[in-house]
């Protein structure tokens, strides 16, 4: 089975795992490596080829947090099959660039918006930021209520997906 894994804002890599007992063959972009991840104290010992590193690992669904090489890293796993099935265009949803509070709502469901038009205004760290439409379209839903707080990445305003707009 092969999934796509991305480190931070880097490129996606095709990664596969075949287990043989405690060891495994990890295939990264078509190249096979021998590897293992074994508990070691309160952490793990990661071995890949001839390299061994101490690592702390937390799995949160398809987000994997790893502390190794002296710092923390976040990796994202994507199932290419699931993604194709969902077919959701990220441009359909304006998400929060940072945690904050919704202080102004400029649009309502059903309203036509043009690219660059202000959808909502958020406040974070006493700074106000305008969230604008990334494309022309029609507002499907405003996901957050006025005065409500949200985390980074939270969906704020959904646009009607392009492929269903004319249906």
């Amino acid at each position: 089975m092969t999934y796509e894994i991305t480190l931070g804002a880097g490129d996606a890599h095709a990664v596969g795992v075949t287990r043989h007992g405690t060891r495994a063959t990890v295939t990264i972009d078509g190249l096979a490596h021998q590897g293992s991840l074994r508990p070691l104290g309160d952490a793990y010992e990661l071995t890949l080829g001839d390299r061994t590193e101490r690592a702390w690992v937390v799995v949160d669904h398809d987000t994997i947090h790893v502390h190794a090489f002296g710092r923390g890293w976040t990796l994202q796993l994507v199932d290419p099959v699931e993604r194709a099935r969902r077919g959701v265009d990220s441009a359909d949803v304006a998400t929060a660039p940072m945690p904050g509070t919704l202080i102004t709502v400029c649009v309502e469901a059903g309203q036509a918006v043009a690219q660059g038009e202000v959808l909502v205004v958020i406040e974070s760290m006493k700074m106000q930021s305008e969230i604008v439409a990334t494309r022309d379209g029609e507002v499907a839903e405003v996901h957050v209520a006025l005065g409500e707080s949200f985390d980074r990445g939270a969906p704020l305003v959904g646009l009607v997906p392009i492929d269903t707009e004319d249906v």
Partner: peptide, 13 residues
């Protein structure tokens, strides 16, 4: 190494 750690830790595989 990090990609391998993520893959080996994820229950997906």
């Amino acid at each position: 190494c990090l990609l391998a750690a993520a893959a080996l830790a994820s229950p997906r595989f």
